[in-house]
Amino acid sequence: MTQRKQRTQQRSRQAQQAHQSPPRAAACPAPEQHPAENSERWERKEKREKREKREKRERKETRERGRERRAAAAAEARAKRRRRPEPTAAPSPVAASAPPGSDRAGAAFDALYTRHAVTLIRQVYLLTGRPRFAREAVEWAFRLAWQRWPEVAVDPDPAGWVRVAAYDYALSPWHRLRPGHRVPERPAREAPETPPDRPDDRALLNALLRLPAPYRRALVLHDGVGLGLYEMAAEVEASTPAAAGRLTHARTWVALRRPELELYELPPVRQGEILHTRFTQLAVAQRVTPTAPRTVRADSERGTRRVTRGAFGVTGLLAAVTGLVLIIAPDGYTPPPEVPVATLPTTVPDADATPGEWAGHDGGPRPGGPGSPEEAVVQNLPPGARLTPEFR
């Protein structure tokens, strides 16, 4: 009986423990229901982690390279500052007046002039129709470029800088005041430039020269030089619609004046191609002999010295004139001498005077006549006195 009771109590305790604690199956992790989705999620996580590590490594390498470049640049700058200049020979008078680094600057200028001078002369010839004047404009632009070489050397397009200066000089309206500028140029013996030989080339050049200067410049830049519409608008300092209008007007003018080109019914792109070919043939036909680049540089330096001397001379002349005026001028203000003023007389003519002596023909008083009050005033004036308005 006692054993049965013990077994019953033991079973009841086991039942209570089994009811309170979860089964073993619940303690184990549940099996995965979608293994494919779980694997894709782990793959994406691994890829993301790898990408983040790669980007972090690249950023670190970029920072290290930047630090190395900065350190190398600083070391090079310190080495340049510490480096002593090597002894050189005594410079010539022209080199002494040239800007610092004139050897390399002169070489760069000569290369620019040699490469673009002939092309620019031919382009300016299309604008003006004058070979010698075109060469003068281009040489003037290159002389100005040598005077401002530090500015031109760092320009993104040095040839464009010179082209703008040459075009502005060639199309300046002040050249109309030059004697003989309206008369066509005669071919010089020493200059090989000649006008176009073919009649169609001469007719095309005449039609181009009859255009106003802004339209002519836009047409030469776009269809002759080959600049795009936006570049051409920026160079002529106009808006893009305005530049496009000038170009369209110029093409229409040439198409109407030269019908053999058959431009009127063609699309704009084809018109530009035909005009580019004709302008190139017209420009290449000119045999150009530019001046040597060293001569251009020497003329530029000579002109700079001449302008500087003239400025100093004018300043000295103004200083001399100012000093002379200060020496000659009196020290103080001298008032003018006082002049006595005429006053009314205290006495009047006698009443016994005959009317004919101071009266008019109508019996009235005659101003200024003999015996009149005015006559008495004039007779009683002191020497050097002036009359007041009422006695004039």
Rank of each mutant, 00 (worst) to 15 (best):
D157E: 09
A71S: 07
D350M: 04
V94R: 10
R178I: 11
G356R: 13
R210T: 13
Q17H: 09
P29N: 08
A30L: 14
P373D: 13
G101I: 04
A207T: 06
Y113A: 09
V254Q: 06
P195N: 03
G313W: 13
G356S: 15
T343V: 15
T334V: 15
R302M: 05
T128V: 05
A159Q: 11
R132C: 07
F279T: 04
K50C: 05
G101A: 00
R257C: 10
V236L: 12
P267H: 12
G101H: 02
A319F: 11
T304D: 00
A233G: 04
Q17G: 04
T114W: 10
R216G: 06
E55A: 08
P199R: 10
V314G: 10
E357C: 03
D362N: 05
D362S: 03
P267T: 06
P156Q: 13
E55G: 01
P335R: 08
R294H: 04
R294K: 09
T295D: 14
V124E: 06
D157N: 14
Q16R: 15
R84F: 03
L211T: 02
S102F: 01
K80N: 03
P23A: 15
T8Y: 07
L326K: 08
K5A: 13
P99F: 14
L344M: 12
R63A: 10
P365R: 11
A75S: 11
P337H: 10
F133S: 04
P337W: 11
E262D: 13
R13G: 04
G364P: 00
E52I: 07
L261F: 15
F312Y: 05
E68W: 03
F279S: 03
G106R: 12
V225K: 09
R306T: 13
G245H: 08
G224I: 03
A159M: 08
V164K: 05
E37L: 11
R198V: 01
P337C: 04
L266D: 07
P340G: 11
C28I: 09
R294W: 06
